[in-house]
Write a protein that binds this DNA or RNA. Structure first.
Length: 574
RNA sequence: CGGGGCGUAGCGUAGUGGCUAGCGCGCCUGCUUUGGGAGCAGGAGACCGGAGGUUCGAAUCCUCUCGCCCCGACCA
């Protein structure tokens, strides 16, 4: 029984000044967490109970699926990460430290290497596979910008699993098993979620899906097709190419377009001097960037912005993408800022990429690589040659679904899980092989599966709070029932305590507000802020032999007889 | 790393060169109060993020520095 007269808890009346998003504000106000440093939080009793509840659900579903729990150190030596070159590739996100002898160590940001090495040490035959093992671990990443409280921290709790299979079919099955276990897990956690196609990103690998919890403060953007159910992270969204054809485009013509360095100014001058009817979509935007120091040009229709995240995700092997800045143009006068066109890409030494949309629409107005000059009737394939089509333009609500062309909707979400087929990258790097039935060594193929456990606390808080405070799904809440005793006599307190004991005997988890010095208003406010789903008030109703039961979710209130209340309330929990 | 904002008591804040740094919440003591963040009285609690400087005098001006929040870059 959690007795508030003794509970290590202080709730705050005001929002903390450094918290913006709801989960951060409320978790701090309700006394679940406290900030220690940027992106680093301590868990107080209520918060820690909640965190462990989520861990418990995750653990139960992993175990039920037949996966086995292990536990690695968070403090790890450099060597394994050297072998996969992640000691360097992970860059400054990696917390590195030295021991007294000067040896290099790191705080684990993720544990592929350790899992792979452990299996290597224990398994040598195909008969040992398939195998899936997991851990719930504190992970460390020195985020360039921790944000949104618990949502993106530098220290966080993550469940990570790895599957080991002999072949692709086995991997696919392990992957599907995990996917099914995740669905059960997130259902139990009471999270609304979407499963979307994703890019596998820095981890490497192929097939990849994300579990996203939709909410306004999410950092991920995804598209959803209301018709066929297609869902994808915007980075993984492919463009449905459609558009009219341009059979007879006149020869390229150069136009005087004074003072038109931007699309808007260009369209205005075109419509004034060269007949009406031009829109931004008729123009071709040339964005110059450095892809790992190599200058490239990316073409998108003039009415679209370039989405650097999408572009980067779709340029595998490019680790840094940087827009041209003033000084880059100054250093390279052959590139005329505001008037770049794709016609001379080759002679300018530019690698030419284009959004798929550029493939069809093909009578463009674009820069003529000369100040105050543009060209029209510029045709793809005739006047310029694209090296590679790559998803580059921003995705918009209403864009065609790649599967069925229905206009898609766009939403924001928090990534709470990610599953992907890693393949043999780590097994190869660390030489994880098992003997197959022919007695020949076979490189093992792996899958990798993560759930942000501490992040899930915040995601649930984001999705299920109201004006008054938090509002937990019962399985996650720090207690099933929050009993508030009011009044100044002993009777309500004794009665409430008695009820709490009966409920506990029946298996319920109870929080009892038995504070004598707090006024009823304070207790009600605290109960609402803390967010336990059922609030029971033992007070003035006692005169009539009743207590009040409030449903934090429905916002409803009803009176029930004290007599038999424990049984009735226990029924509620079923 | 670029842009913006902010560091004053546990929390939220006022204070743009002048006296003892003010207020609300919270905390302590006493009395009253107990169904919506109670009232009265008394009290404790701040090296004004740090260092250096300007000045007769600095929370306040200048320089540097550390930290925090937001947007972007980046990232699960």
């Amino acid at each position: 029984m959690l007795q508030m007269s003794r509970l290590f808890l202080r709730t705050l009346r005001d929002d903390p000044a450094d918290a913006e998003v709801a989960s951060h504000r409320l978790l701090v106000r309700a006394g679940y967490v406290r900030r220690v440093a940027a992106g680093i939080y301590s868990w107080l009793p209520l918060g820690y109970i909640t965190l462990r509840n989520i861990e418990r659900v995750v653990r139960e579903e992993m175990d039920r699926a037949g996966f086995q729990e292990v536990h690695f150190p968070a403090l790890l030596p450099r060597e394994p990460y050297e072998a996969t070159s992640r000691w360097n590739d992970y860059g400054s996100d990696l917390f590195r430290l030295q021991d007294r002898k000067g040896g290099d160590y790191l705080l684990g940001p993720t544990h592929e290497e350790m899992f792979t090495l452990m299996v290597k040490g224990e398994c040598s035959s195909y008969r040992d596979l398939p195998l899936t093992i997991y851990q719930i671990q504190t992970k460390y990443r020195d985020e360039p910008r921790p944000r949104s409280g618990i949502i993106r921290g530098r220290e966080f709790v993550m469940k990570d699993s790895y599957s080991f299979d002999i072949d692709d079919a086995g991997l696919e099955k392990s992957y599907q098993d995990h996917r099914a276990a995740y669905i059960k897990t997130f259902e139990r956690l009471g999270l609304k979620y979407a499963i979307v196609s994703a890019m596998s990103g820095a981890m490497g690998g192929s097939k990849s899906e994300e579990f996203l919890a939709p909410c306004e403060t999410g950092e991920d953007t995804y598209v959803l097709c209301p018709s066929c159910g297609f869902a994808a992270n915007v980075e993984a969204m492919s463009t449905k190419v459609s558009g009219k054809s341009y059979p007879d485009v006149p020869a390229l013509e150069t136009l005087d377009t004074p003072n038109t360095p931007t699309i808007d100014s260009l369209v205005e001058v075109l419509n004034k001097n060269y007949g009406g009817g031009f829109t931004a979509a008729d123009t071709l935007k040339n964005i110059l960037l450095f892809a790992d120091d190599e200058p490239i040009s990316v073409l998108v229709p003039g009415d679209r912005e370039v989405d650097l995240k999408r572009l980067q995700a779709n340029l595998p092997g490019v680790s840094e993408l940087r827009l041209f800045e003033e000084e880059d143009f100054a250093k390279n006068p052959k590139f005329v800022k505001g008037y770049v066109g794709p016609q001379d890409a080759q002679s300018l030494g530019l690698k030419l990429y284009a959004d798929p949309r550029v493939e069809i629409g093909s009578s463009w107005v674009t820069g003529a690589n000369k100040s105050n000059t543009h060209a029209r009737y510029v045709q793809n394939g005739r006047d310029f040659k694209v090296e590679k089509y790559v998803e580059a333009a921003e995705v918009r609500a209403g864009d065609g679904c790649p599967q069925c062309d229905t206009p898609v909707v766009i939403d924001r979400a928090i990534e709470i899980g990610h599953i992907f087929q890693l393949g043999r990258k780590y097994a190869k790097a660390l030489d994880l092989t098992v003997l197959d039935s022919d007695g020949k060594p076979n490189v093992v193929t792996m899958g990798s599966y993560g759930i942000g456990v501490s992040r899930a606390v915040a995601a649930i808080a984001e999705q299920s709070h109201d004006q008054l405070g938090l509002r937990w799904p019962r399985e996650i809440a720090p207690a099933d029932i929050h009993i508030v005793a009011t009044g100044k006599e002993d009777l309500p307190f004794d009665t409430a305590f008695d009820l709490a004991q009966k409920l506990e005997a029946a298996g319920a988890r109870v929080m009892l507000d038995d504070r004598r010095d707090a006024s009823p208003g304070v207790k009600f406010k605290d109960a609402e802020l803390i967010g336990i789903p059922t609030i029971v008030i033992v007070g003035k109703g006692l005169a009539n032999g009743v207590i009040e039961v409030r449903d934090r979710w429905a916002g409803t209130s009803s009176e029930i007889p004290l007599e038999g209340a424990a049984d009735l309330l226990t029924q509620l929990l079923k």
